Computed example of a mutant assay.
Amino acid sequence: MHFRTQIPILKSISPVDYNSKIVSLGSCFAVNMAEKLDYFKFRNSCNPFGILFHPLAIEKLLDFAVSGKQFTANNVFFHNERWHCFDVHSDLSNPNKEELVAALNSIIINTRKDLEQASHLIITYGTSWVYRDIETNQIVANCHKIPQKQFEKELLSIETIQKSIENTIDLIEKVNPKCSIIFTVSPVRHIKDGFVENQWSKANLISALHQTFDLRLSTISYFPSYEIMMDELRDYRFYAEDMLHPNQVAIDYIWKRFQETTISETAMTTMEEVGNIQKSLSHKPFNPKSESHLKFETKLREKITILENQYSFMKF
Rank of each mutant, 00 (worst) to 15 (best):
R301V: 08
F3W: 06
F77L: 06
K295W: 04
D252V: 12
R234G: 00
K145Y: 05
S93D: 10
R189E: 02
E135L: 11
I122D: 02
S290E: 12
D17K: 03
N276W: 07
I206T: 14
T127D: 02
Q259N: 15
P55S: 06
E116F: 00
V23Y: 05
E260H: 03
N105V: 10
E173M: 07
Q6P: 10
R4A: 15
D38L: 15
N47K: 11
Q248H: 10
T111V: 04
N75Q: 09
N32T: 02
D87V: 03
G126S: 02
S106W: 01
P246M: 01
E159P: 01
S218N: 14
K60A: 09
R301L: 15
I7Q: 05
E59F: 08
K149L: 11
N75M: 10
F71S: 11
V130L: 01
F49P: 01
L217Q: 14
W129S: 00
R112P: 01
F78D: 02
D63L: 14
C46P: 05
K145L: 07
L307R: 06
K113Y: 00
N80T: 01
I191M: 10
V196E: 11
V249K: 13
M229C: 03
K202Y: 02
C85V: 06
S290Y: 11
Y18T: 11
N276S: 12
F151H: 03
E35N: 15
D87H: 08
S186E: 05
W83L: 04
D114Q: 09
T160C: 01
I306M: 11
D87P: 00
I139E: 06
S201N: 09
Y236T: 03
E291V: 15
M1Q: 10
F238N: 00
N105K: 11
S225E: 05
S312P: 13
K178A: 15
A30H: 06
K113R: 02
I51T: 15
K289L: 13
M230H: 04
L205Q: 06
S128H: 06
R112F: 12
G26P: 07
Q6G: 12
F49K: 04
H283T: 11
F183C: 09
A118V: 05
I134C: 08
F286I: 05
D133K: 13
K145G: 05
E173W: 06
E159G: 03
D214Y: 06
S93N: 12
V88I: 10
Y39M: 10
E173A: 13
F213Q: 09
V249A: 15
I304V: 09
V249T: 13
V76L: 04
P95L: 02
E81L: 13
F3T: 12
L100F: 05
I108Y: 01
N94G: 05
M1K: 04
L52T: 04
A102K: 14
Q150R: 13
R112S: 14
R82H: 11
K174Y: 06
M1R: 07
S27A: 13
Y226H: 10
